[in-house]
Computed example of a mutant assay.
Amino acid sequence: MLDHTDQRILEELSKNSRITMKELGEKVHLTGQAAASRVAKLEDQGVIEGYTIKVNQEKLGYSIHAFITVITQSMNHQPYLTFVKTQQEIIHNYKISGDGCYLLECKFPSNERLDQFLTELNKHANYKLSIVINK
């Protein structure tokens, strides 16, 4: 169970994982060394699994953000899963319950590329497309 200080550390690291241990310590009322020890402990316990960056997809030329509910056509999902592994536009592939079998979060540079993707996807599964209008 995490105490209040550990929760604050996670909150601060979630905002900025590049923060120095000294700055982190100041924010959670610890020394830099004590903050570093707490972070190391959280990493050892598997609470912190890694650090990442947030990329602005629009600035990379991917202006279309889509969620695609996927309904597989058979109980054998392997052809679909193999297809998914080869597609660079997929941000996340979630296995879900409810209306579909999977939920894809994707980014596309153009409607033409989206159409190509959906044509290929339709060889493996049916789908329902939702386009993000605004965040």
Rank of each mutant, 00 (worst) to 15 (best):
E23D: 15
E23H: 11
G25P: 10
V28R: 05
H29I: 02
T31P: 14
T31C: 12
T31N: 15
Q33A: 11
A34K: 12
A34F: 05
A35Q: 07
A36L: 13
S37E: 10
S37I: 06
R38G: 04
R38M: 02
V39W: 02
K41Y: 07
L42P: 01
L42A: 12
E43R: 06
V47E: 03
I48P: 10
E49A: 06
E49I: 09
G50E: 02
G50W: 02
Y51D: 03
Y51G: 03
T52M: 06
I53C: 07
V55H: 00
V55T: 08
K59Q: 04
L60F: 04
G61S: 08
Y62G: 04
I64M: 04
I64H: 02
H65D: 08
H65L: 10
A66R: 02
A66C: 09
F67R: 07
F67H: 10
I68A: 00
I68W: 01
I68V: 03
T69G: 05
V70W: 10
I71D: 05
T72Y: 08
T72V: 09
T72W: 09
H77S: 12
Q78T: 15
Q78N: 14
Q78Y: 14
P79A: 15
Y80D: 09
Y80R: 06
Y80G: 06
Y80E: 07
T82F: 07
T82A: 13
F83C: 15
F83P: 14
T86W: 02
Q88H: 14
E89P: 10
H92I: 12
Y94D: 07
I96D: 14
Y102P: 14
L103K: 07
L104I: 12
L104P: 14
L104D: 12
L104A: 09
E105M: 12
E105Y: 12
E105A: 12
C106H: 13
K107H: 11
K107G: 07
S110C: 05
S110E: 00
E112M: 00
E112K: 00
R113E: 13
R113T: 04
L114P: 03
Q116R: 10
Q116W: 09
L118A: 10
E120Y: 06
L121D: 14
L121S: 15
K123Q: 15
K123G: 09
H124K: 13
H124C: 05
H124V: 03
A125E: 04
N126E: 10
Y127G: 06
K128D: 10
K128H: 11
K128L: 14
K128F: 11
L129H: 01
L129E: 03
